[in-house]
Design a binder for these strands. Structure first.
Length: 326
DNA sequence: CTGAAAAA
DNA sequence: TTTTTCAGG
């Protein structure tokens, strides 16, 4: 039921970092951070990413550790932040609702035993958790002069749109649905050790003789983040069905099948809420000292990874000839 | 999300 | 051969 089905359809090729040097990459901030936190940070240091005050600032470690990858290869990242969450995206919404419900239960329990202080703290804490991460991420990126774009809805959609418009050269993402959102070129594995992988939309469409609408239809039949596919239908079956019948509706009609919200999911991929209201430069003037102070002093994150990360950022700035304001 | 094994 | 399921990161 995953997007992984798209992998078998996508045209991917190895590409060297030297081939993409100097380009601008739009990155979905939420996905990038999430991936970084679950892989790298989480397993290396369990307790090191909460401050004495108990605030989660793992995002700062993730940023400091992940950003050098861009700088060292002369890539300019543009971080795209999610706007309102699409109500079709069940998983995240459900997760947040559960978290809220758990917090609410705890708060009520505290209230019932007359512990007003604990109740207030629980309320403030859960409310602020995501805010802290969002704010500190923005602040650190601002100090490093990394461009930020606010998406009206899905970050992946906005990033793909910017790539399609030529405002950036690539979308940087591990997700395959940038294909569905119409990103011409997506760079994968920017964070991992080896060479990046280039995903080519036009080549993908040509390889299967599909239009983008048809590719979206194939994906919907297999199942996406926003809908369950038909059971027993994977990429092969979906592909031949769409090619035989032309589009999603004809396939559903032929199989006498129904997919919940299919029309909305289709529109979400083909015509998502995006904005032209972005503006950024690519000549970065990072204030590394201020950034280091922000992380280590203000948030008291004293991890080796942070020190190493900033060293890598500094030396990469020298190599690529970017000016440091300090 | 990825890879691999089980199920269909 | 294709899809689903599941473990692991």
């Amino acid at each position: 039921m995953g997007n992984a089905d798209l992998r078998s359809l996508a045209v991917l090729s190895e590409i060297g970092f030297d081939e993409v040097a100097g380009s601008v990459v739009a990155v979905d901030a939420h996905n990038w951070l999430y991936r970084y936190l679950t892989t790298t940070v989480k397993f290396t240091r369990e307790g090191a990413y909460t401050t004495d005050a108990g605030e989660e600032v793992a995002n700062l470690i993730g940023l400091v550790q992940g950003l050098p990858k861009f700088f060292e290869h002369d890539l300019t990242p543009v971080f795209v932040f999610d706007g309102g969450v699409t109500d079709l995206k069940d998983e995240e919404v459900a997760e947040r609702r559960e978290a809220r419900e758990r917090a609410e239960e705890q708060r009520k329990a505290a209230e019932e035993r007359g512990d007003d202080v604990a109740a207030a703290r629980l309320e403030a804490r859960t409310q602020r958790l995501t805010d802290v991460i969002h704010e500190t991420t923005r602040e650190l990126l601002a100090l490093l002069d990394v461009p930020i774009v606010e998406a009206p809805a899905e970050g992946e959609a906005q990033a793909s749109y910017m790539a399609k418009r030529g405002a950036v050269d690539y979308v940087g993402s591990e997700d395959y649905d940038t294909l569905l959102f119409g990103a011409p070129y997506t760079l994968r594995q920017l964070t991992s050790k080896g060479d990046p992988e280039l995903m080519d939309l036009d080549a993908t469409l040509a390889a299967h003789d599909l239009t983008r609408e048809q590719l979206v239809d194939v994906a919907i039949l297999c199942g996406t983040d926003f809908n369950d596919g038909l059971s027993g239908v994977g990429p092969k079956t979906a592909l031949s069905a769409v090619r035989e019948h032309g589009d999603l509706w004809a396939v559903l009609d032929d199989r006498e099948a129904y997919i919940e919200n299919a029309d909305r999911v289709r529109e979400l991929f083909l015509d998502p809420p995006v904005t032209d209201d972005f503006d950024f430069g690519t000549d970065l003037s990072p204030d590394v000292e201020a950034a280091r102070a922000y992380v280590t002093d203000e948030w008291e994150v004293d991890a080796d990874e942070v020190a190493r990360g900033f060293e890598r950022i500094e030396s990469s700035l020298v190599q690529t000839g970017l000016d440091d304001w300090t």
